[in-house]
């Protein structure tokens, strides 16, 4: 059955991974792309990064954080049930070539989102140094998967419960200070993390790509809510992105646009919690 959830697992308290039967999407997906998920008929259309895909088995994996009404509904679906609507793959794929040394940084759920890019960059002959960070060890997902695919994996936690105590940007600064020649940096994670990484690389002239997560509706180049200012011009996250030159992105505007519906989203969340009884 289309969009059937074949496997579901909790990666930690608030992050889940589902593997969905979606042969058409799996066949054409590339690293860096996303899907639109509508878990049940009345839910929102939400964009989620494709965390893994297997064209042979026809499966697509998605990792999501349970933060709002629609992700709560998505989390309520069990193995064997189907997602009402799934559209993809969307967005421009990550540019993959042999750049030399590529540092790939993932924070929070972004850790899972960098996985396909890390894998393909390594296959393309790059030296891939992966830095992942989270608040504490429990939130560090995809550690072993990334370790297996990276040339080197570095870990930071805010509380020091795993790896270095501090932020991914601290690790990045040290890498740069050590004199390593970095040819490209990819950062995926919370907006403040991506911004700090860009601030660090800018003065060193390191090409930095960020994967943005603006609000989306149709996600097919129509509604314009995903607009971001890049190099002083309006760009659309769903068709021009999601990846952009980090040094050109107006992160402050992105942050303010991401907060637009925070207050009403609470009402939707409460409504869903009542419906689901939890």
């Amino acid at each position: 059955m289309m969009n059937k959830i074949l496997r579901k697992e909790k990666l930690n308290e608030s992050v889940a991974r589902i593997m969905v039967d979606a042969p058409q999407i799996a066949r054409s997906a590339k690293a860096g792309q996303f899907v639109v998920v509508i878990p049940t008929e009345n839910a929102e259309r939400i964009p989620l990064t494709i965390a893994d895909f297997d064209p042979d088995r026809g499966t697509v994996s998605i990792i999501f954080q349970i933060v709002g009404a629609t992700t709560k509904v998505l989390d309520s679906l069990k193995e064997g049930e189907s997602i009402a609507h799934l559209l993809g793959p969307l967005g421009v794929p990550t540019r993959i070539e042999n750049f030399g040394t590529v540092v790939v940084i993932g924070g929070g759920v972004g850790i899972a989102e960098i996985y396909p890019a890390v894998r393909v960059l390594k296959q393309a002959g790059n030296k891939v140094i992966t830095i992942i960070g989270a608040r504490c060890e429990d939130l560090l997902i995809y550690r072993e998967e990334l370790r297996a695919q990276s040339t080197e994996l570095r870990i930071t936690t805010d509380d020091g419960s795993c790896g270095r105590k501090g932020f991914v940007s601290d690790e990045l600064k040290d890498l740069i200070a050590s004199g390593m020649k970095i040819d490209r940096l990819i950062a995926v994670g919370p907006v403040p993390m991506m911004k700090v990484c860009c601030d660090v690389t800018k003065s060193h002239g390191i090409k930095t790509v960020v994967s943005l997560n603006p609000l989306m509706l149709d996600a097919t180049g129509m509604c314009g809510i995903c607009r971001v200012t890049v190099g002083g011009k309006i760009k659309f996250g769903c068709v021009d992105g999601p990846e952009f030159d980090g040094h050109e992105v107006d992160f402050e505007e992105l942050s303010s646009r991401l907060k637009m519906y925070k207050d009403v989203e609470k009402r939707a969340f409460d409504h869903v919690c009542r419906l689901l009884g939890g």
Partner: peptide, 27 residues
Amino acid sequence: PGIYSANEYLFRVNMMKAWKFPEHLTP
């Protein structure tokens, strides 16, 4: 925030039925 394209605004209301929020989850 607060400035919509007509496409976005009408898509929310007509397609996603935001006028029936929160039974329909798109605000």
